[in-house]
Computed example of a mutant assay.
Amino acid sequence: MDTYSFLRELADSWVLLAMVIFYITACLWAFRPSARAANEEAAGIPLRNDTDAHLAAQEPEADQDG
């Protein structure tokens, strides 16, 4: 058996199985119930200062109009 055939057979069987197990484990780890608070906090990072920036951007326009 040459090297290419051996590596191809290994990748088609055991490496594929290892990658599937790793993927399932990563999904279960990310969506575990105890990580809900951390996931919600991370999801809100882009919008954390959105309200303050929006209000600050509107104040100078109100001063110029009035």
Results as ranks from 00 to 15, higher is better:
15 V>T: 04
66 G>D: 04
4 Y>H: 13
57 A>F: 03
26 A>M: 09
50 D>Y: 09
43 A>H: 05
56 A>D: 04
43 A>D: 08
40 E>F: 01
26 A>N: 09
35 A>S: 15
53 A>M: 14
15 V>N: 01
1 M>S: 14
47 L>K: 09
34 S>G: 11
39 N>F: 01
57 A>N: 05
38 A>G: 09
13 S>F: 01
21 I>C: 06
33 P>Y: 02
53 A>R: 15
10 L>V: 03
32 R>Y: 09
35 A>C: 10
35 A>R: 03
28 L>Q: 06
61 E>R: 09
30 A>S: 12
9 E>W: 01
39 N>S: 12
17 L>F: 10
62 A>I: 11
43 A>I: 12
4 Y>A: 14
32 R>K: 15
14 W>H: 09
20 V>L: 07
19 M>Q: 10
57 A>L: 05
15 V>D: 03
58 Q>M: 04
2 D>L: 10
59 E>C: 03
50 D>T: 06
45 I>P: 05
28 L>P: 00
53 A>V: 09
7 L>R: 04
44 G>H: 07
23 Y>E: 07
37 A>L: 10
56 A>S: 10
7 L>N: 11
62 A>V: 07
11 A>V: 03
26 A>F: 05
19 M>D: 01
16 L>S: 11
12 D>N: 15
33 P>R: 11
17 L>H: 07
22 F>G: 04
19 M>N: 04
51 T>M: 08
3 T>I: 08
53 A>D: 10
33 P>W: 01
11 A>M: 05
61 E>A: 13
25 T>E: 06
33 P>M: 05
13 S>Y: 01
50 D>E: 11
7 L>S: 15
6 F>D: 11
29 W>G: 01
10 L>S: 06
5 S>F: 00
13 S>E: 02
19 M>P: 00
49 N>F: 14
8 R>L: 12
18 A>G: 15
4 Y>E: 08
2 D>P: 00
61 E>W: 03
1 M>L: 11
37 A>Y: 07
43 A>S: 12
50 D>N: 07
33 P>Q: 06
30 A>T: 09
10 L>E: 02
58 Q>K: 13
63 D>Q: 14
63 D>L: 15
32 R>P: 08
40 E>A: 07
11 A>D: 01
44 G>R: 12
31 F>P: 00
52 D>R: 13
50 D>L: 10
55 L>T: 07
42 A>T: 10
12 D>F: 13
35 A>T: 07
57 A>Q: 06
43 A>L: 13
30 A>F: 07
63 D>W: 14
1 M>E: 14
64 Q>H: 15
11 A>F: 00
45 I>D: 01
